[in-house]
Each structure stands twice: as C-alpha cells, then as structure tokens.
Amino acid sequence: MTRMSRLYLGLPMWANSEWCGSLYPPYGGQESWLADYAQVFPAVEGNTTFYSGAPRPETVAAWSRLAPPHFRFCFKLPASLTHERRLQSIEADFDAFIDSLAPLHDRLGPLLVQLPRDFGLAELPRLESLLARWPQGLACAVEVRHPEFFHKGTAEVALNRLLITHGANRVMLDVRALFSTSAMGSPALAHAQSEKPRCPLHVLSTGEQPLIRFIGHLDESINLNYFQPWVKQLKLWIKQGKTPFLFVHTANNRYAPQLARRIHQALADELGLPPLNEFAGECQSQLF
C-alpha cells in the first residue's frame, strides 16, 4: 500500500454462503473462500472467535497458508471472556487465546474487545488490567456500548484517557444509516435494528489504527449519504500517519460486499486507493 492509500477495508466475516455467485464462485467450496476474499479485501473482522473461542491449531495453520502477507485479521476476543466473565480473572485464557493466533501475528490488525451493553464505569478497572497485560506489538480496539460512555462526562473522559494511555483504539460504531428509517415491512432491517445498539457516534482516534464499523441500511442511497463525511475524516487520519480500518456491514450482510465496493469507489480518488479486484463469482458468471 502507498502512504496515501493506507486503509484496510473489509467485511465482518469471510464465511458466508450468501456471497456465492458474487464475491465467491456459485459452486465453489468453503475451502477457497478466504483466498477469494483476500484477493479483494485486505482485512476482515473475524467474528468467529467471539462465538467459538480460540481456534484450533490446524485451523489457524490453514488461515496462515491462505492469507497473503498484506492481509490483516481483526479477531474479536471470545464472548466467554468479555461477556460471560466480564474481563474478570481471565489472564490465563486471554494468554492462551493470543498464543493460539501466534502463526498469524504478522497479519493481525487490531484485536477487538467488544464489551457488554451494561459494562460501565464501575468495571473500567478490569479493562485497565487487560490493557496493561496486552502484548506489545499487537494493536487493540475497544468497543463500548454503555450509554454513560457517550455523554462526554466523567465516564467517557476516564475511558478515553485509559485508551490513549495504552494506545488502544476506540471502536467507532456507526449505526446512523441502519436506524435512519423504521423497519416496517422489512424483517431483515427489523432484526438488525433489534440486534445492534443505538449508540451515538463519537468520532475520535485514541490510537494509531482508528477502527470504524459502518452498519448500513438496505437502501444504498441512504448508506452513501451517511458515509460521505467519513471520506474527509479518513483522509485526515491517513495524512496524520494513522492506519484506519473500516468494516462494512449491511442489515443482513447479504449485500455487504457490494456496499463495501461502492464505499471503496467513494474513497478511491480522495485517498489514492488502487482498484479492487473483481469478485470471483462475477468473473465466473461472465465466462458463461
């Protein structure tokens, strides 16, 4: 990547059968999905570890073989650590999780610590203990959802100071497009609105790798309207020497690859981005 194109764009996962026929060939096997994904996007969120925990050694070895050197995985800490145990007495399991990813350490972007919606100021010392233990050389991104961290009061000041002290990135969850209309008549939109927190968007970079999770609507025009202000902000961060990560979701993620491609087009000229490769499934369909 050139200096003016230092942006990692990706999706919330790579394993999605609904992308067969677009991002992936219509009849290809799952074993080729990561390689096909990495031919287009340089990063992925990696939600699988949130639900399944530390991956098996043979799984990590396969990912290591398939992912090119420039690729970045941004795995989430397991929910067993963040939600069930709420970061309390997790040292051994946290170390084991980090060790399980050792073959990928040269291809890890910020690892995500997604905290429960009711994890507030009173539990902040637990986050402080985790960040103090965080391995040097591995980036961290923290996503909070408690309302008191969005009121610009004592809790938010304490959180931001903690993140800045440890060089951790505060995740910016942008759900404005998702909640811009009612979900009447759209089960997919209703499900997404019930699942995602309606947090205010506070745009700030507390570390060197600002991380945005853009949760889109089903209407592309709405998405592009809400995304447009990010173009200037991303350009500023890159000019400052930062390395942003941008992950694009849609209400049901069926069309997340297409939205990410449109967003890339909106960014390309301003950021000097190289063109994305064509989707493998679309290339194959053009042959017939």
Rank of each mutant, 00 (worst) to 15 (best):
N277V: 02
F245C: 01
R86F: 02
M184I: 15
L218S: 14
S186F: 14
T49A: 10
D93Y: 09
A92R: 09
S285K: 11
E282V: 07
E282Y: 08
S180K: 05
L271G: 02
H202R: 04
F94Q: 01
G207R: 01
A35W: 08
A256I: 15
R117F: 12
F71A: 02
E270G: 05
L131I: 05
K232M: 14
S182M: 13
L87Q: 04
L236S: 15
E278S: 13
V60H: 09
L66E: 15
H191W: 11
V40M: 03
D219E: 10
A141V: 12
E18W: 11
C283M: 11
E45N: 06
R161H: 14
R107F: 03
A192D: 08
L77T: 05
V231I: 09
S129D: 13
M1Q: 07
E220K: 02
R254K: 15
M1A: 12
D36K: 09
E18G: 06
A61T: 13
H146W: 15
L87H: 08
M184C: 15
F149N: 04
P187C: 01
P103N: 01
I215R: 00
P26H: 05
L124R: 07
R170Q: 12
A43W: 08
L138K: 03
S17I: 10
H151A: 14
S100T: 08
I263E: 02
R3D: 10
N252R: 04
L34W: 04
K152D: 14
L287Y: 11
H264S: 14
H191F: 09
R117C: 10
Q286R: 13
Y37F: 07
I263R: 00
